[in-house]
Design a protein around this nucleic acid. Structure first.
Lengths: 201, 201
DNA sequence: ACGCAAAGATGCGGATTCCGCAAGATTGAG
DNA sequence: CTCAATCTTGCGGAATCCGCATCTTTGCGT
């Protein structure tokens, strides 16, 4: 990767991280595009060369994680489908390696801010939209594994959307819970129930 | 219901229908709030008293249908959970009673327009957000039936999000297919596979 | 090492959207 | 019949998003 692409990736990362941090700190309505651009060290106009709006910038990291799930699903075609799915999801969402790169001073305050952020309807929509984009990739990967065609068969899309639904539900429960329930077991539990057919308890 | 509430409901319906029709006909970017308001016979400012934006108006009917699924789920607590769910979803989405109220001249062109509309990322997000709003209601209804608490248990949210995922997937497949596959069987199939645990084919 | 073509960053201006506020009109209850 | 609550509307401002023109930076061939 040349200097050009690296700088572009850095700018994108700086913008999305700044957007996320400022939104968690102040709330969506108290962050202007101008603020995000300033925090990332670029002009406001440049922000719109990378993202169409605040929302897209904020969920960019979530989108990346979801897309990497599809990548992991393409790695070992021999592994049973749901084993691979569980492994892929846990890898991307459980330890949250991304958070390690941006340590947060006050964890409690951060969690509160994230809750506020996801209470915003616009952000929820943006988040789900990102999941839908990734869903197409996941469906393609599932199609490759199972010999089904996403254009013709319902199965791969159904699996992909169910996986994203389970992931979203587990994350929502993680954020709702107090004291917080670890995300990893929640994700594993949700996917296990899904493969068991969601029988009435 | 008094005159006041009826007129309000009528204005809301007129606005959402106008928003949907104009968007399907011209594409999202070629419809301004002003146009929608004019088609509904109110001032542009009034539009914003009902909806926060074009997207919310357009998906208002979808949201209503999803919310009615939750209502149906509260009707007969004796029926097995998944039977009730399947019945509720098919009732609201299969025959599309809402479309009967607004007959479309050129069906083929309408379908094309709807495809274009849902290709718009912003609309996809809005649609999913509406589904998420309804999800809370559905989760509550499932919680009542199964004796689980949405605040404490993963199960009701998991079922609700899985149902919405299956519904969305079936609708997407219906719109993708050519010649069109009837929506009813697709919905039934998707929900059946979900209860079967999505085994690899 | 040099210079050129491609790609990105920036500033400006316009169109649009969304919301708060205040005034006028309509409805429903007493 | 009267009045308070509610709804509608116009105005104005803040913010967003995008096209266009210009300037700077990067990558590559010579």
């Amino acid at each position: 990767m040349g200097l050009r692409e690296r700088k572009k990736a850095e700018t994108r990362a700086a913008l999305s991280w700044a957007a996320l941090r400022l939104t968690v700190e102040r709330g969506l309505d108290n962050v202007r595009v101008e603020d995000i651009a300033e925090a990332a060290g670029v002009s406001p106009r440049t922000f719109n060369n990378y993202f169409s709006g605040k929302g897209e910038a904020i969920v960019a990291r979530h989108l990346d994680r979801c897309l990497r799930v599809a990548d992991v699903l393409r790695e070992d075609p021999e592994e049973p489908l749901w084993d691979a799915i569980t492994r892929a999801v846990l890898t991307q969402f459980a330890p949250d390696a991304a958070a390690t790169a941006h340590p947060v001073a006050d964890t409690a305050q951060w969690v509160t801010g994230v809750r506020m952020m996801l209470a915003e309807p616009a952000l929820r929509g943006e988040m789900l939209r990102a999941g839908a984009v990734a869903e197409a990739e996941i469906a393609a990967a599932v199609g490759d594994r199972t010999g089904t065609a996403p254009e013709r068969d319902l199965y791969p899309h159904l699996v992909a959307s169910a996986v994203m639904a389970a992931t979203n539900t587990a994350m929502a429960h993680h954020l709702r819970s107090d004291p917080p329930v670890p995300l990893g077991p929640l994700l594993a539990d949700a996917l296990a129930q899904l493969t068991a057919g969601l029988p009435a308890p």
